[in-house]
Write a protein that binds this DNA or RNA. Structure first.
Lengths: 252, 252
DNA sequence: TGTACATCAGTGAACGCGCGTTCACTGATGTAC
DNA sequence: TGTACATCAGTGAACGCGCGTTCACTGATGTAC
């Protein structure tokens, strides 16, 4: 929780180490604050250094390049979103909400975070920053978010609240990589419980959620809706039908 | 087709007018080419001027600011996507394809264009350019694209190929603005045929399509899929179930 | 048809700005004996 | 515990770059008589 963000550093022994770790945190926090205000495209090392009151060259003691800073921010952002989603699911489970409402709770939490942090959301789920190419380190944190949705689907299926919907369009087999099926098994699925069609259906829920949040955030629903919040819930309910999961919107 | 892009100019009378119109086209084409290569964030008036072989100040005879150039490009881009979608629908109708396949055809056409022009796609459906705020002129062209999807839904409903699916989650009324319902009526719907729940369901198809294309384009499906094209079709088929529209994927 | 004037496309220099990154350096902190 | 040396955080100047926008100007094109 309060350890190094990008990778595990040796535990701080000396005063120097502690100062370094503290400044690294400051640096990331400052960068994130600027990102939140101006967006990823205009995030600049010089501006961060300025706000920290240090020479622009000094940040290079902490970060090898602007790209590396972006990577660190991206990883942290995935982790924050994952935490929000996990917390929502944990609470929904603790309250023993119906499975449809667990999905709704996770979706709302993710959306809420996105609305509070639009530029940080866009950093990970919007247009990639020009010239930046994500290293492999971002894959893990990214799939941690997706794993929450997998857990919702797995739970619902196990409880009999979800499954192939009646009259479901037959979908091909051999569509997704084994790693994705494994994600569902890690989330608690019985081996064999999720075949490709069901995985694809679950994925459409996740893709739909992200797409919907982007659609809202990027302004494509402006002037179309009487009530954005209710529309969001309704759209989530429709998305959930992909795996036959019913959302009772009257529960609020 | 070869008229002015932003608004209707008086027909070119003099040589000067013709030269002006031609250079305006060159300017937009050049800007678009640079946009296609570098992305919207790094589109610069100076670079465009350079490629056109003119002084950077000269472009201000054609465009009042960088923002105005972006607006012109955005409008044109919506229109190109709309043309592609309309052409796909027209062809599908001419071939008398089943309604599920018309949806698939439109979706594939839109996706194909997006993959060929990722930066142009991102200009309109990705993260908005920092500091840019879209004027009202972009609303019309944007809804021209959405109108194609409305037409698909309207046709399918009229033909009895779509409607409220069995066991559909009840959705609230009074969710969408009258202008949206009117969009469906303009697309040929009988008055009253589309109530709010059905409109919302149709909208999720459109939002899902855009979201799915973004998800792919922004790299979030990397290493998850054995076959991106087939997954895309499958996801479209799932989206279509929102209005009970069946897509037979075996038809290819 | 020819002339006087108005329009306007395009120039080139300038303003003022910000950026990422490198490099030789100083001075404080840490380590080994 | 004290000293000699190594490590490393932070400095400040510099390199080389690109950007949007303004402004006074020249010279070609168009218009009215």
């Amino acid at each position: 929780m309060d350890s190094a963000p990008t990778d595990d550093q040796p535990a701080p022994r000396t005063a120097r180490d502690r100062a370094r770790a503290a400044l690294m945190r400051d640096l990331l926090d400052t960068a994130r604050r600027q990102l939140a205000v101006d967006g990823a495209a205009s995030l600049s090392l010089r501006a961060v250094a300025r706000e920290l009151g240090m020479a622009s060259s000094a940040v290079y003691r902490y970060v090898a390049s602007r790209d590396e800073l972006l990577t660190a921010l991206i990883i942290e952002t995935y982790e924050r979103i994952a935490e929000v989603a996990e917390a929502a699911l944990d609470e929904a489970r603790a309250d023993d909400l119906p499975h449809g409402h667990r999905w709704l709770a996770v979706g709302r939490a993710v959306r809420g975070w996105a609305h509070q942090h639009p530029n940080e959301w866009a950093l990970v789920y919007g247009t990639p920053v020009a010239g930046y190419h994500a290293p492999a380190d971002t894959i893990g944190p990214a799939s941690r978010v997706a794993a929450v949705l997998a857990r919702v689907a797995v739970d619902a299926l196990a409880a009999g609240a979800a499954g192939m919907p009646d009259g479901a369009t037959p979908l091909p087999d051999d569509l997704v990589e084994p790693s994705v099926v494994r994600l569902f098994e890690t989330a608690g699925a019985e081996p064999g419980a999720f075949d490709d069609p069901l995985v694809v259906r679950s994925m459409t829920m996740w893709v739909g959620l992200v797409g919907l949040v982007n659609f809202e955030l990027f302004g494509h629903l402006a002037n179309s809706l009487v009530d954005d919040d209710t529309f969001f819930d309704a759209a989530l309910a429709v998305a959930a039908e992909a795996i036959g999961l019913q959302v009772d919107l009257d529960l609020g």
